[in-house]
Amino acid sequence: MVADLLIAKNPDTGSSLPYLIRVPLGERGLVLKTRDTWPRTSKLYCHRADGWPPDAEIVDRVPVRSCSRRGPAIDLVLDRARENRSQIVLTRARGREMIFWQSPRTAKQARPNVALPTRRAAGQVLEILVDSREKYPYTFTHQQATTQRRALPAGDYAVELDGVVAAAVERKSLADLAASLTSGKLTYALADLAALPRAALVVEDRYSALFKLEHVSPGVVADALAEAQARFPAVPVVFTETRPLAQEWTYRFLGAALRELRAHAAPAAADIFAPQDDAAAVGPVVARVTAARKRPADGETAAARAWARAQGYVVADRGRIPAEVLRAYRAR
């Protein structure tokens, strides 16, 4: 069994991970490709290597004080004064293995030491609509809110005003943001969000993390993000460091948006649902709101319910059909 942590140069010069590490775990040890020799400024993405090369070019050899696995994490303690504690986390995302190497310093950066408040958002208990296509949605268990799964016309989380979606938030991880920016998919998502009275996009990471992306040019992603924000100024893009903070921001934004729309509500639907008070957009928005509020004609309810189920919407067997589902059915 290997008694040291071995760090060597990756003989595969075409790899974006220039180093190999061999962790003394098990008989043969765990061999990983990684980007650096230690997780100093951020956690390091790792990938399993086929094996330890017999002619490896060693760049560092550090005695190991202890190495043990506890569930999905491997705790590694080195026998040196500084940079001696780290953890290798093995997890799965989107059906494939993901491995990260982190130190206490980088783990603290990833989990800011803040206590989230329990204060109600804008003094109200929210009913938040969660898009039924979200695989791992926010639960809002820490916040004073209830959730309901439903297919949303835009965004991943939303609130209603008078039976119509009034505000929505689109959630993105950093990897998802980069992929949707480079593919152009984010443009369509932002266009749908811009049609709502209030909307935003929240990113579960720091803006600085854009410039640490490995499989895409950071400059290309940063430019695409700036162009998208300039094209859709009514939909702010907010970076929140972590997933819990993104959930908290989403909760606060939806509560504030709902209170603001209620406070400025007028008898005319145009005053309530004009996106960002843009008078040019009042006509189409009022038409959608009026269509959503129009009562179904005889026989339309059953047809709309059948159509909604075929499209993946969640509707009850009896009772009122959600306004946005009815609107989508009439606009099909």
Rank of each mutant, 00 (worst) to 15 (best):
Q144G: 13
W38C: 08
P267Q: 03
V216W: 05
A81I: 12
A226T: 06
K108Q: 11
V315F: 03
A154L: 09
R327L: 15
H47W: 11
K108Y: 03
L78S: 03
P322C: 08
A291K: 14
W101H: 02
T290R: 15
V203E: 09
V237Y: 11
A166P: 03
E27A: 15
A107E: 13
L129I: 10
G299P: 09
P322R: 07
D4R: 07
A110W: 02
I272H: 05
L196Q: 02
A189L: 10
T242H: 13
E241A: 15
P275Q: 02
G312A: 04
A302Q: 14
R293K: 15
I74C: 03
I88L: 09
E227P: 01
A151S: 12
R40P: 06
V202P: 05
A158V: 08
A179Q: 07
R119P: 08
L210I: 15
V203M: 11
L174E: 01
W307Q: 05
V114F: 03
R332N: 13
R332V: 06
Y45H: 13
G255H: 11
L201N: 08
T182P: 00
A331S: 15
T146V: 11
R120L: 15
A246M: 13
A167W: 00
L225A: 06
L177S: 01
S208N: 09
R119A: 15
P54N: 15
P72D: 04
D317C: 00
Q102S: 11
I21L: 12
D162Y: 05
A166S: 05
V289T: 07
R61D: 09
V203F: 10
Q109K: 15
V216F: 07
L116D: 05
G14L: 13
Y329K: 04
Y313T: 03
V169E: 01
G219M: 01
F273R: 02
Q87Y: 03
A158D: 05
Q229T: 07
V286T: 13
